[in-house]
């Protein structure tokens, strides 16, 4: 580029290649700077996945627990999960995930209608966990129940992954 060209370009409308390159270069480095600030922030606000200790089985108390006599059910902790244990009959206990498949509320048991019921949006399940009414899209996850006999007639309810 001669001296004359450069002078004439001071007034020309499109910037010369070199200036365009510098503009592009600075512009993208500014973008990179913003990205390098935003990326760690984005990662920081996304919570890390912490593996939960896996639970194989929990004891849900005795079959003679007065809660079963009064309300017909009990909610126990299975790791971080809530599991509902329902007394369906004499020595017939069922265990299901207590978290409603609709929007995450905790379900209860309606003794008079013999069904699991979510008070949040009116979801209904039967005692096998099947969604039988209201908005829930899926059945409740079933758990396995074993009764371990104890001295004195009552048994211990042991809930484990089905």
């Amino acid at each position: 580029m001669s001296m004359g060209d450069r002078q004439s370009c001071l007034s020309c409308e499109t910037p010369p290649d070199r200036r365009r390159f510098v503009n592009w270069f600075l512009g993208t480095s500014f973008g990179a700077l913003i990205a390098s600030v935003l990326y760690p922030i984005f990662r920081y606000v996304s919570p890390p996945r912490i593996p939960e200790p896996s639970t194989a089985q929990v004891e849900a108390g005795d079959t003679s627990d007065p809660q079963f006599q009064q309300k017909g059910f009990k909610i126990v902790r299975f790791g971080a999960e809530a599991v509902i244990v329902v007394r369906a009959g004499e020595n017939d206990f069922r265990a299901l995930s207590a978290t409603c498949t609709h929007l995450d509320c905790v379900v209860g048991y309606q003794k008079d209608r013999n069904r699991l019921w979510c008070n949040c949006h009116g979801g209904a399940y039967d005692l096998t966990g099947r969604n039988i009414g209201g908005p829930p899209p899926r059945p409740l996850t079933p758990y396995k129940v074993n009764l371990v006999a104890k001295s004195g007639g009552a048994s211990t309810i042991v809930v484990s992954k089905a």
């Binding site: 909610i75 126990v76 902790r77 809530a82 509902i84 207590a98 509320c105 905790v106 379900v107 209860g108 979510c118 008070n119 949040c120």
Partner: peptide, 10 residues
Amino acid sequence: DPFAPAYANI
């Protein structure tokens, strides 16, 4: 209480 059912008319 994360381990109690939601109460009625919530």
